[in-house]
């Protein structure tokens, strides 16, 4: 199979308006991926499926990933010369900026005909709140059908072009997207005789702290 760089270059040559970026994977597995832009996602995917050299006819896995907004503290160090003539002082200036998060859909593509793969492609939404639309790849690979419904259910990505976008796992009336990192689940740990730290802590919140037990009286002689 061609390298991802070659695939990217061919995609860019074929679709001049599209942006395709190589996302490197620093891990041991080194499965790098291609970030496609959402506007051209569907046609790029169709090309990957039908290109005779690639024939990625099988989308094995489609899943969502949540990248919340990150607050990053930049530390800027400036050296200020001491007007009195002493050693120059180092002044640290801290500024905070918020790196906007996004929701991401990741697809693992294989070729069953040519028996190669995986080619990992990613699509990212603009933010996590109101611009959460991505093109659906279900018309390209039917296997995304349930998986995109699951992403919609658990992450809240709206797939445009999906023929039946309903919640897959939770009930219809459910409002939240529980796989997001900032989801707070219902507090129903009323009484849990458990040593499990997280569960015990939540269970304790339902009860007032009992008054300290009075020490037993000294046995009378």
């Amino acid at each position: 199979m061609e390298s991802l760089e070659q695939i990217r270059d061919r995609l860019l040559a074929r679709f001049p308006g599209a942006t395709v970026t190589l996302v490197t994977n620093p891990g041991v597995a080194a499965e790098h991926s291609l970030l496609l832009d959402a506007a051209h996602g569907a046609e790029l995917a169709l090309f990957l499926r039908d290109d005779p050299a690639l024939q990625l006819d099988y989308c094995s896995n489609a899943t969502g990933v949540d990248w919340p907004d990150k607050e990053i503290t930049d530390v800027k160090k400036t050296t200020v010369p001491d007007p009195a003539g002493g050693a120059p002082k180092v002044v640290e200036e801290k500024t905070k900026h918020v790196e906007p998060g996004c929701l991401e859909a990741v697809y693992h593509l294989y070729s069953m005909a040519l028996r190669h793969g995986p080619v990992v492609i990613r699509l990212r939404t603009a933010n996590r709140s109101d611009q959460v639309k991505l093109p659906s790849l279900t018309p390209v690979w039917r296997s995304c059908d349930f998986q995109e419904r699951e992403i919609y259910d658990l992450y809240g990505i709206v797939f445009e072009g999906h023929r039946d976008l309903r919640r897959l796992l939770m009930w219809e009336e459910f409002k939240d997207h529980p796989m997001r990192k900032d989801y707070v689940d219902p507090d129903d740990y009323e009484w849990e005789p458990t040593p499990h730290a997280a569960v015990l802590e939540r269970a304790k919140a339902h009860y007032p702290v009992p008054p300290a037990a009075t020490p037993p009286e000294a046995p009378k002689p």
Binding site: E173, D188, Y207
Partner: peptide, 24 residues
């Protein structure tokens, strides 16, 4: 419900047991 079952339990059937004794 929108976030959980409504109601989350049936108080006629189930009552949370008293809290475990623990230090103050």
């Amino acid at each position: 419900g929108a976030h959980d079952l409504e109601p989350t339990m049936n108080p006629a059937v189930w009552k949370p047991a008293p809290p475990l004794p623990r230090s103050g």
